[in-house]
């Protein structure tokens, strides 16, 4: 018994190693905070371990554990996060030149920061499908399975999120 459990732990460590970067990336884009992201992923993996016996077989591990991560991001947001201040409009105008030729490395970094902020400003129902598709490369089908919605709904929400994100970025230009 002890041996079997030790074997389980090794197998689980291998699973964690395989999925940790992708899970952390999802959590980071969802929360915007490296610290929160790490907490979320650690807790989610622990939860996955505890429920491993109930999981076996009925879904892909990555789908299942990503779902736990996303749910935890949702709860975290509801529990604690104050509303992110948006970049000041004039600052944004000053730091985000519209001509690509004028871009320096620093400017492109600032523009990515603007995307990060805009992402956090999206409601959860849009942010989650956008993070999963555009940032994590999930298909709409996979995104739907993770979020517990249909493929069509995932597609509609991701599209709406891209619209909202681009509207926000356009405002900030």
């Amino acid at each position: 018994m002890e041996l079997a459990r030790a074997g389980d732990e090794d197998a689980f460590a291998a699973l964690v190693r395989t999925h940790q970067d992708r899970l952390y990336a999802v959590a980071l884009r969802m929360t915007g905070e490296p610290h929160d992201a790490q907490d979320v992923v650690q807790e989610a993996l622990l939860q996955a371990w505890q429920h491993l016996p109930t999981f076996r077989g009925d879904a892909r591990f990555s789908t299942w554990v990503t779902r736990i991560v996303v749910n935890r991001c949702h709860n975290l947001r509801r529990a604690a996060r104050p509303v992110q201040p948006l970049p000041d409009e004039e600052d944004a105008a000053a730091t985000l030149p519209s001509s690509p030729a004028a871009e320096t490395l620093a400017v492109s970094a600032r523009r990515r920061e603007a995307v990060r902020q805009a992402l956090l400003a999206l409601p959860f129902d849009q942010r989650a499908p956008l993070v999963l598709t555009t940032f994590s490369g999930c298909t709409y089908g996979e995104t739907g399975r993770i979020l517990g919605i249909s493929e069509g709904a995932a597609k509609v929400r991701a599209h709406r999120a891209r619209r909202a994100l681009s509207d926000r970025l356009r405002e900030w230009k």
Binding site: L23, P34, P100, S108, V115, T134, F135
Partner: peptide, 16 residues
């Protein structure tokens, strides 16, 4: 408009 989104998505993120 979308280029910075793709740039952010392309950033390599590694777990701590």
């Amino acid at each position: 408009l979308w280029a910075p989104v793709e740039a952010l998505a392309a950033e390599e993120v590694r777990a701590p």
